[in-house]
Design a protein around this nucleic acid. Structure first.
Length: 191
DNA sequence: CGTGTTTGACCTGCGC
DNA sequence: GCGCAGGTCAAACACG
């Protein structure tokens, strides 16, 4: 694919990990440490800074502390506590693209001002608190807006495969060794 | 039987 | 304080 370099929640370049064949990536946002606010209204990048409205500082790692008590999500708060939000819009008939991670759907909600429901997913990897929301663009249902929240504390199950395909087995060795810093793109991206 | 999805109920923050 | 809206839980269900 020839889309822009999209940083993914792991800090790598998303295009390397997402099978975007059949998708047209039209826009993306990196929302770091803040809240996307009215994401749907801003993903088309014609409005003010998307970090605006992020006066809320980063909440604690509530999710990891959660038991079954009153610790609940707050509207617009980043419960995953990772500080990374990535939102992007793709033109696709499919709502969920294969990004290499395994997601478990945990909720579905119809939202105001949008005829399309919003779907909520959690990374099904144990201990990983990354979430994503998927909804269709209210203005153009042919577009899908995906918002990732948080940073995976593990590697993509498909990452090895992708690296193997593109870089060769020596790269696989680096990745699988755990010596790779997920917050920094592999060196081979620098050039 | 294990895993994932569906869906209604519940909780919380915010605006009025 | 109340109602609304968004986000999550969890039981029931479906499927391989």
């Amino acid at each position: 694919m020839n889309g822009p370099e999209v940083p993914n929640p792991n800090g790598t370049y998303f295009e390397e990990m997402v099978d975007l064949s059949g998708f047209e990536l039209s826009d993306y946002l990196l929302l770091e440490g803040g809240f996307e606010g009215d994401l749907l209204a801003k993903t088309t990048a014609n409005s003010e800074d998307n970090s605006a409205g992020s006066s809320n500082e980063f909440p604690r790692h509530e999710a990891s502390e959660r038991t079954n008590s009153n610790i609940r999500s707050k509207r617009g708060k980043n419960k995953s506590g990772t500080g990374i939000r990535v939102a992007f819009r793709t033109k696709s008939e499919l709502e969920v693209m294969d990004d290499g991670f395994k997601w478990r759907k945990y909720g579905k909600k119809s939202v105001k001002n949008s005829p399309n429901p919003r779907n909520y997913y959690k990374c099904s990897s144990g201990g990983c608190l990354v979430k994503k929301r998927v909804e269709r663009d209210r203005d153009d249902s042919s577009y899908v807006i995906t918002t990732y929240e948080g940073v995976h504390n593990h590697e993509s199950p498909c990452l090895v495969y992708y690296n193997y395909k593109q870089m060769g087995p020596e790269v696989v060795d680096v990745v699988s060794s755990g010596g790779w810093d997920p917050q920094a793109p592999p060196s081979h991206y620098s050039g």
